[in-house]
Amino acid sequence: MDTTSVLDLPGLLAAVAAGDRAALRIVYARQSTRLFGVANAILRERDVAADALQEAFLRIAGRAGQFDPARDNAEAWLAAIVRHAALDMLRARGREMPTDDPMLGEEAEAAQAEARMIATAEGRSLRDCLARLEPRSRAGIVLAFVHGLSHPQIAERLDTSPGTVRSWIRRGLIALRGGLA
């Protein structure tokens, strides 16, 4: 466990908002492995994921003033920026990134991932809610959120139509919203 320091992530983001590049560099040093993983899970090409992480850090530098330590979790706030930068890149490329990775969305990496996820109370609640969803709703949500798959791509994997996938996912989202405070 890291010792909490004066320069924890919220403090660093306040410094980034004030234009401090060294603080941004510390954020990068501490978070880039996790965040590059987030971009790479969506884009699945290291070069493109690196471009997305670069774009994300430009956005972080520009938007750090919007980070609100009273409302936002710093790690989640950073990851959301990275995800949307990666999703933008994915859409700009017409979602042509390969989706035939046999490991994609499968259980092999799930044990480790679940261990990381349930390290927090929020993660445990989400895990429990996801576990209560229909498997196809759960699969759709995870494939979209983690791997950036579109409705048609998920439909192909689950052997159904994009419209059906969309309604499964919406049903799942409604259940999650009800299950999480």
């Binding site: 590049r21 941004l24 560099r25 990068y28 040093a29 880039s32 492995t33 996790r34 590059f36 993983g37 987030v38 790479n40 899970a41 969506i42 290291r46 070069d47 994921a49 690196a50 992480l53 670069q54 850090f57 430009l58 530098a61 936002d72 979790n73 790690e75 989640a76 706030w77 990851a79 959301a80 995800r83 990496e109 799930a110 480790q112 991932a113 679940e114 990381r116 996820m117 390290a119 927090t120 929020e122 993660g123 989400l126 895990r127 949500i141 995870v142 959120f145 983690v146 999650l176 919203r177 999480l180």
Partner: peptide, 28 residues
Amino acid sequence: EARLAPLTEFAQPETPPPGLWERIAGAL
């Protein structure tokens, strides 16, 4: 964003390519 954030843990952490910080600093 807050509800779904824990799902980012499903992404396998991975070291970014060397020199990426320098690229970012140069772009900033």
